[in-house]
Amino acid sequence: TPLILRKLQPHASDPMIQKIIAALHVILDEEIDHVRKGDVWFEYACERVGKSTSSYFEIIEKHYPKSFPRKININCVARAKAGFDKDELARISLTEC
């Protein structure tokens, strides 16, 4: 979403673009909350079975091989707000978070 918002910024004087930008901000805020809730449940599930939350990437790779084929540019601020820690961000991010 931040990339799309940056691309729309030069056209922000257009009333329709303003509505799109506002909608994208709502989506971003709701997505952060959604991911955070999932993170809370993941932490709970790990605690119940005695697994460390750092096992996330091993679990994903086991059940969904090649899910992280390459690092990408991510919204580090939003992911940190959603509960990702520095090690998790470093594992998936092309840039330092």
Rank of each mutant, 00 (worst) to 15 (best):
residue 33 D to F: 04
residue 40 V to C: 04
residue 65 P to Y: 05
residue 57 F to P: 03
residue 84 F to W: 04
residue 97 C to K: 01
residue 61 E to A: 07
residue 55 S to L: 10
residue 29 D to P: 07
residue 57 F to D: 06
residue 60 I to Q: 14
residue 19 K to E: 03
residue 91 R to K: 14
residue 16 M to L: 09
residue 58 E to P: 02
residue 59 I to Q: 15
residue 58 E to C: 12
residue 74 I to R: 02
residue 12 A to G: 12
residue 92 I to Q: 02
residue 94 L to V: 04
residue 93 S to M: 07
residue 17 I to F: 06
residue 11 H to K: 15
residue 42 F to T: 02
residue 11 H to G: 11
residue 49 V to R: 10
residue 63 H to L: 09
residue 85 D to W: 04
residue 92 I to T: 00
residue 88 E to K: 08
residue 78 A to N: 06
residue 48 R to W: 13
residue 48 R to C: 10
residue 89 L to H: 01
residue 28 L to E: 11
residue 82 A to H: 00
residue 79 R to L: 07
residue 33 D to I: 12
residue 70 R to M: 07
residue 58 E to D: 15
residue 43 E to P: 09
residue 84 F to E: 00
residue 74 I to F: 08
residue 62 K to I: 10
residue 36 R to W: 02
residue 15 P to K: 01
residue 53 T to I: 11
residue 28 L to F: 10
residue 16 M to I: 12
residue 8 L to D: 08
residue 28 L to V: 11
residue 64 Y to R: 05
residue 83 G to Y: 00
residue 80 A to H: 05
residue 90 A to N: 04
residue 6 R to M: 15
residue 9 Q to G: 15
residue 47 E to C: 11
residue 37 K to R: 10
residue 7 K to L: 11
residue 6 R to E: 15
residue 30 E to A: 06
residue 21 I to W: 05
residue 65 P to V: 04
residue 74 I to E: 01
residue 96 E to S: 13
residue 72 I to D: 00
residue 13 S to K: 10
residue 16 M to C: 04
residue 67 S to T: 09
residue 2 P to A: 14
residue 51 K to S: 13
residue 86 K to V: 03
residue 31 E to H: 08
residue 54 S to G: 11
residue 81 K to S: 00
residue 21 I to G: 01
residue 57 F to A: 01
residue 48 R to V: 13
residue 96 E to I: 05
residue 51 K to G: 10
residue 28 L to Q: 11
residue 1 T to E: 13
residue 30 E to Q: 12
residue 74 I to C: 05
residue 24 L to F: 13
residue 14 D to Y: 08
residue 8 L to H: 05
residue 36 R to G: 00
residue 55 S to W: 09
residue 12 A to I: 12
residue 27 I to C: 06
residue 92 I to C: 03
residue 21 I to V: 14
residue 47 E to G: 13
residue 39 D to W: 01
residue 96 E to T: 03
residue 93 S to E: 05
residue 14 D to L: 08
residue 61 E to L: 11
residue 48 R to M: 07
residue 41 W to M: 12
residue 58 E to Y: 14
residue 74 I to Q: 01
residue 25 H to P: 03
residue 22 A to P: 06
residue 95 T to K: 07
residue 33 D to M: 05
residue 93 S to A: 09
residue 76 C to W: 00
residue 37 K to I: 10
residue 81 K to F: 02
residue 54 S to Q: 15
residue 90 A to F: 06
residue 4 I to H: 09
residue 71 K to W: 05
residue 87 D to N: 11
residue 57 F to I: 13
residue 69 P to T: 02
residue 85 D to Y: 04
residue 51 K to T: 14
residue 10 P to H: 15
residue 20 I to G: 13
residue 90 A to H: 04
residue 75 N to A: 14
residue 15 P to I: 04
residue 44 Y to T: 12
residue 84 F to H: 00
residue 56 Y to L: 11
residue 71 K to A: 04
residue 84 F to L: 03
residue 42 F to N: 10
residue 93 S to H: 05
residue 23 A to I: 15
residue 68 F to H: 08
residue 31 E to C: 04
residue 56 Y to G: 06
residue 55 S to T: 14
residue 74 I to H: 03
residue 74 I to L: 09
residue 52 S to W: 12
residue 32 I to E: 04
residue 3 L to T: 10
residue 79 R to C: 03
residue 36 R to K: 06
residue 14 D to F: 11
residue 14 D to I: 05
residue 64 Y to P: 02
residue 24 L to S: 06
residue 96 E to L: 03
residue 97 C to D: 00
